[in-house]
Every structure is written in structure tokens, then in C-alpha cells.
Design a protein around this nucleic acid. Structure first.
Lengths: 162, 162
DNA sequence: TCCACTAAAACTAATATAGTTACAGCCAGA
DNA sequence: TCTGGCTGTAACTATATTAGTTTTAGTGGA
């Protein structure tokens, strides 16, 4: 299959929080509900992702009045790879679900033989992910988004957007 | 998630059929049951994969007495990438399951902004897959498999192995 | 102390992968 | 031409994973 949508959502969340941090003058924190509204999903799913990103030091949380999340660190230094490694724990290529037949010459050697090929291909992908940052993504996103800065600022400054 | 085990199984099947073609003197064809026994799964699952590989021209089928499958073409010319493209139809990176909020500056532009990054990373992985062939895999597999050529030949020459 | 928010568990729903059963269809060879 | 061994495919089940929902407890700034 594919790298699951959780990774896309993570990049979305970080781009959003990067924009908020860049443009919002007062409180940079946004609630999981606000973020969920942009992503078009539910706040619990967003919190589950934020919790993982938080462990990787990519976002930080604040409690109490005006609580919520903000990006931790510089968007220009957060790479796609950091995000990938934060949310994807398993290797890219799956092996057999049930171990192959050890009495067959192929079954006996196929898994260790595959490993270097799989590792190298995954590494090639990751090396590419390391080349881009959240700041790059945010810049491109704003180019595609047909929205004036004024309108955009209005949207992201409303902490409990509808 | 990950690239699903179907891809691993496909490489396994092709390495096995390449070995059979290389070493078996008489009938090169092997049944889905024989292959399933090496992979340690069921023949129907194997036939489903073989059917896809067949459409890509990587294996061919024979009916009637002594029926079964064999590798089509030269193992030195079948790359990991050809196998990948035969069995994986969807792009590597998934987008949002439900379209993001178009009224948010990030939601409005994130998907087209992500596309070039995703395409490039997938391309980097595929370029790596194009570098190796079934013949390479077979060679490595035999190195890892602690089995004499005589014993291996004995196993792969039994068309309905237990 | 209040209250808006997070944390986490427990559940449901939807989807994808893989395993199983069953049966019709095909064809090389006798 | 008939037979037997195998493929092709559909229908069903089992299992796992992702995502959505509900609920309850916990946090800490003002």
C-alpha cells in the first residue's frame, strides 16, 4: 500500500501552525478543533498526531486559558524527513506475513537477500525528503491558495473557526 | 503504512521461477500450489499475483497436462521497478481522505503544493528500484540459503512438493 | 476557583489484505 | 474425443489498520 494519510495530515498541521506563527501577532496557539477544521477531520485524530509530533519536538502544547498548540522551532529547519520519521515507525517495504518455507532454496534465503535492496530504496526516498522543509511547503501552499493575505490572516486569527 | 507484502511475494515468486528456469532441465512450469508452498501461503493468493504479473508480461501460463507458470523473459532484464509497477497501482503517498477546508489558506493550497514533493520522493525510490534485477536477487538469495545445489535442485524439481 | 482545553481509553465504522471454499473453464496428451 | 490436472474467478470469512466518536479525567492560566 502507501504511506498513510497521517503523514499528509502532519505536514498540513505543521504548515498551518507555521503560518499562524509567522502571521499572528498575539497568541500563536491553536486548538485541535481549529486545526481539525482546516484539515476537515475530527479533533481527536488531530490530537493523536499532535501528541506524536510533540514527542519529536516539532510542536508544543499549552494548557489553561488560551490553550492549544504551536509549532516548535524554525519552519526552515524542519524537514519532510523529520516529519516522516516522527509519524512512520515501520519500514517502507513489508516482508512476508508468514515466514517462507525454509526447506526451499528461495524461501530460505529471500528475506536476508531482500533487506539491503529494501533498505537502500527506502534510504533513497528519505534522502529526497530531507531536501525540503515546512517553510518550502508553506510558501508553495500560499501560491496555490487563491486567497489574499488579509483574508488568510482573518481566517487563521479566529481561534475557534467555524 | 508500507508497501504491502504483495510486492515481496512477487519478487519471491519471480526469483523462484528464475531458479527453476535456470536449473530445471525438463518442464519449467510450476503450479500455483508449488509456489504457494515456497512462499508459505495459499495458491489462490499466488494465482491472483501471477495473474497481475502475467498482464505485465513477467510470467506466462500453460494449461493442460503439466500446466503451470514460468518466468517470461530474462531475469537479468527484469528490474525491481518493473515488478513494483506491475503490482502497485496507487501512488506511494496518500493525501487527505476527506478534502481539506477550502476556506482556510492552508487547506486551499496544500494538496497541489504537496504533489511535486511527493512525486519527486516516489521517483527517487523508483530510480533506486530500477537499478536491481531478479537475477541479482536470485544470486544473493542463494548465498544466504544454506543449501547445496543438489538439494536445492531436488526441491525445485518436485512439481508437487509437500 | 473557574473553565477552556488536552489526554487517553473504549468503542464503532470503514476499508484493505489475506485465507478459504467452490466451481466453471481450459488444454496437452492418451 | 475424452480425461485429468490445473487455472480463473467469484464469494465468503478472518484479521488488521485507519479513522471517527463518545466519554471521563486531568491541566493550568487568568
Amino acid at each position: 500500500m502507501a504511506v498513510v494519510s497521517r503523514y499528509t495530515i502532519s505536514l498540513h498541521v505543521l504548515a498551518l501552525l507555521a503560518y499562524v506563527a509567522e502571521r499572528s501577532s498575539a497568541n500563536n496557539h491553536r486548538t485541535s478543533e481549529f486545526i481539525a477544521n482546516s484539515v476537515n477531520t475530527n479533533p481527536v485524530f488531530i490530537r493523536r498526531i499532535l501528541s506524536v509530533l510533540s514527542k519529536a519536538g516539532l510542536v508544543s502544547v499549552r494548557y489553561g486559558t488560551g490553550a492549544g498548540w504551536r509549532i516548535a522551532g524554525n519552519p526552515e529547519e524542519i524537514t519532510f524527513l523529520q516529519v516522516y520519521e516522527a509519524v512512520e515507525e515501520k519500514p517502507l517495504f513489508e516482508y512476508h506475513h508468514s515466514t517462507p518455507n525454509a526447506r526451499c532454496p528461495i524461501g530460505a534465503g529471500i528475506q536476508p537477500a531482500l533487506k539491503p535492496y529494501y533498505d537502500e530504496a527506502e534510504q533513497a526516498m528519505k534522502a529526497n525528503l530531507a531536501k525540503s522543509t515546512i517553510a518550502d511547503l508553506l510558501k508553495d501552499t500560499m501560491l496555490f491558495s487563491n486567497m489574499s493575505i488579509e483574508e488568510a490572516d482573518r481566517v487563521i486569527s479566529v481561534r475557534a473557526d467555524s
